[in-house]
Structure formats: structure tokens, C-alpha cells
């Protein structure tokens, strides 16, 4: 066999200290990321009547309910655009965030049979959970395009920034997902915390209401939620809603989400070595 002499050498020893990420290892397993994402998608809507339409129905029905109760009955302002498209633009990244977060939080525990039997970078599990969410997002995005045509909205010249806001949502979901999934290995309380967390988070994000409703002295605190930056960014890029604080909001969001990601990675990598023993 060729190349035996210079074969790769792996040293297995008690791990110590903190480490961020092993990109080479992750790259080596890139196909597994693909296959697990594909599996999650394939299995998600198996034996369901409506299949992938659920990806559309969930945000769409939420939008309908929001439009009736908040838009019509409560008369919540919507920055001068029709309420349905106002809320749907926010619900898309929100659904992506909430669903990916939930799946990622359970990813390690749900795949425990793999963790205890074979090596692969554990990071792949929450990562592929989040990537699978992107596909749902893209399906639902088609509906948004349809709504924009219906309401005669032409995307603004800033629409090219949309992938960046999408990325911001994903980074945030991954950061929080890493924390929750690793904690879930040790404490099954996370199973109960996650639904509560996403519900709570929904209210502190400007989805059913505009961020302009938040009083001035609270704006800084409000900006600490990266999803606020994502949602306002989506509305700015697609609907042309101009929030005077957008710059501060988005830069705060980016900083907070990066902090979440880095701390999540550190904690995840620190706990990684006991996953197989504890899960």
C-alpha cells in the first residue's frame, strides 16, 4: 500500500484546556454533514400527509393569526406597510431560528447511539440540524416572493444583504444551539427549557410589532437580542422600512451573536470529551 510510511498520526491522550474548533477535522467529515442534513430533511416529513408544505404552512398560518389579532383587532402599527407582509417578513427568519435551535438542542441526545459508537466531530450534529432548517426557509421564501408580488413590493437595492442577515440568524441559532445541546447531555432540563425559551424569545423580537414601538431608553437593551437585528434587517432589505437605529442595532446583534457562537463553541468543545460517557 502506497504512502504507508507517511500516514497520518493521531495521538489520543487525556484532553485538557480549551479549544475552539478543528477545521481540518470538520473538512474531512464534510460529506457526513451533507448526509446528516439530508437525512434530517428526508425524515422530517416522512409519513406526513402534507409533507414539505409544512415548511410553508407554519409561518403562513402564524402570519394569518397575527394579522387578524395584532394587525386588525389590536391595531398594532406596521411601519406603514400592510401588516401581513410586515409580519411574514419577520416570521421567515424567526421560524428558521426557532426550529433550528430546537432541533439543534436535541441533536446530541437524539443521536446518542451514534455518539457512543463511533467517532466524528460532534459539532456536525447541531450544525447539520441548523443547515436542514435553511432548506425549509428557502421553501417558505417562495411564498414571501409571491406576497411581494401581490402587494406590489419591489425589493430595495439593499436586497443583496439578505444572505448576510440570514447568516446572522444562523450564527445566533448555532451559538445558542451549541450551548443547549451540550447542556442537554448533562441536564435533561433543557428539554423543558427550550420550548419556553423560544416562546419567550418570540416576544422580545419585533415580529408582531415594529421595533420603533420600543421606547428610547430601552433600545440598547433591546438591541442585545441578535434576532432583533436580523428581523429589522430583513424588513429594511426587502420592504425598505427604514429604522433610524438600524446601524447600531445590527452591529450590536453581530457582536452578541459572535459572542454566543464563540462561547458556545468553547463550551461545546470542552464538554465534547464526556459526551460519549454521559449521554
Amino acid at each position: 500500500m502506497a504512502g504507508r510510511g507517511d500516514a497520518q498520526v493521531t495521538i489520543l491522550k487525556p484532553a485538557s484546556g480549551w479549544s475552539l474548533i478543528d477545521l481540518r477535522d470538520l473538512w474531512h467529515f464534510r460529506e457526513l454533514i451533507y448526509f446528516l442534513t439530508w437525512r434530517d430533511l428526508k425524515v422530517r416529513y416522512k409519513q406526513t400527509l402534507l409533507g414539505a408544505s409544512w415548511a410553508v404552512l407554519r409561518p403562513f398560518l402564524t402570519m394569518v393569526v397575527f394579522s387578524i389579532f395584532f394587525g386588525k383587532l389590536a391595531g398594532v402599527p406596521s411601519d406603514g406597510v400592510p401588516y401581513p407582509i410586515f409580519s411574514f417578513t419577520a416570521l421567515l427568519p424567526w421560524e428558521l431560528f426557532a426550529a433550528s435551535l430546537t432541533v439543534a438542542a436535541h441533536s446530541l441526545v437524539q443521536n446518542r447511539h451514534m455518539i457512543t459508537k463511533i467517532y466524528f466531530p460532534r459539532l456536525i450534529l447541531p450544525l447539520s440540524a441548523i443547515l436542514a432548517g435553511v432548506v425549509d426557509f428557502l421553501i417558505a421564501f417562495v411564498v414571501l416572493v409571491g406576497m411581494m408580488v401581490y402587494y406590489r413590493f419591489v425589493p430595495t437595492a439593499n436586497a443583496w444583504t439578505l444572505p448576510l442577515f440570514l447568516l446572522l440568524a444562523l450564527v445566533t441559532a448555532l451559538g445558542v444551539g451549541l450551548w443547549l445541546s451540550a447542556l442537554n447531555v448533562l441536564y435533561r432540563d433543557i428539554n423543558y427549557v427550550t420550548p419556553f425559551l423560544t416562546q419567550f424569545w418570540l416576544f422580545i423580537t419585533p415580529i408582531a410589532y415594529p421595533a420603533s414601538l420600543v421606547p428610547g431608553q430601552w433600545k440598547i437593551l433591546y438591541a442585545l437580542n441578535p434576532m432583533a437585528g436580523v428581523v429589522e434587517g430583513f424588513r429594511w432589505a426587502l420592504l425598505g422600512i427604514h429604522n433610524p437605529n438600524l446601524g447600531t442595532l445590527v452591529s450590536t446583534s453581530v457582536i452578541v451573536s459572535l459572542l454566543l457562537l464563540v462561547s458556545g463553541l468553547l463550551y461545546f468543545r470542552r464538554m465534547e470529551r464526556i459526551f460519549a460517557d454521559m449521554v
Binding site: L12, K13, P14, Y119, R273, D277
Partner: peptide, 14 residues
């Protein structure tokens, strides 16, 4: 590599 050793080491070529 499913679990880490507590002490000692192993060296794997390949």
C-alpha cells in the same frame, strides 16, 4: 476515539 482516556496515550498511524 469515541471516548478520551483518563491517563496515558495511544498513537495511531493511519
Amino acid at each position: 476515539r469515541v471516548t478520551d482516556p483518563t491517563e496515558g496515550f495511544a498513537e495511531i498511524h493511519g
